[in-house]
Simulated assay, not measured.
Amino acid sequence: MTTETTSPVAKAGPRAMAWRRRRHSALRFWRQYRTRRAGLLGLAALTLFALLALTAPLTVGSDVTGVTDAPGRPLESPSGAFPLGTDRFGRDLLGLLVWGSRVSLLVGLLAAVLSVAIGALVGITAGHFRGAYATVLMRITDWFLVMPTLVLAVALATVMSRSLSTIVLAIGVTTWPTTARLVRAQTLAVESRPYIERARALGGGHGHIMLRHVLPNVMPLVLAQTTLMISSSILSEATLAFLGMGDPNVVSWGGLLQDAREAGAVSSGDWWYLVPPGIAIAVVALSFTLCGRAVESVLNPRLGVAR
Rank of each mutant, 00 (worst) to 15 (best):
P14S: 14
A16K: 10
R23I: 07
S25Y: 12
L27W: 04
W30Y: 04
W30R: 00
A38H: 10
G39E: 02
G39A: 05
G42K: 03
L46K: 10
F49D: 02
L51G: 13
L51R: 02
A56W: 13
A56D: 12
V60Q: 01
G66I: 01
D69S: 14
G72A: 11
L75A: 08
S77F: 09
S79K: 01
S79I: 05
T86P: 07
R88A: 14
D92H: 09
D92Y: 08
L96A: 05
S101W: 00
L106T: 15
A111F: 03
V113R: 00
L114G: 14
V116Y: 00
I118M: 10
I118R: 06
I118K: 05
I118H: 08
I118A: 04
A120I: 05
I124E: 09
I124F: 01
L137A: 15
I140C: 10
W143I: 14
F144Y: 12
P148M: 04
S163Q: 10
A170K: 01
V173P: 07
T175S: 13
T175H: 05
A185T: 15
Q186S: 14
Y195L: 06
A199R: 05
G203A: 04
L211H: 13
L211R: 13
L215Y: 10
L215Q: 03
L223G: 04
A224Q: 04
E237W: 13
F242W: 03
L243P: 02
G244Y: 05
G246C: 11
W253F: 11
G255C: 00
L257M: 01
L257I: 06
D259V: 12
A263L: 09
A265G: 06
V266S: 02
V266L: 15
S268N: 10
G269L: 08
P277Y: 08
L286M: 13
S287E: 09
T289Y: 03
A294M: 08
G304K: 03
V305M: 05
A306G: 05
A306K: 03
R307C: 03
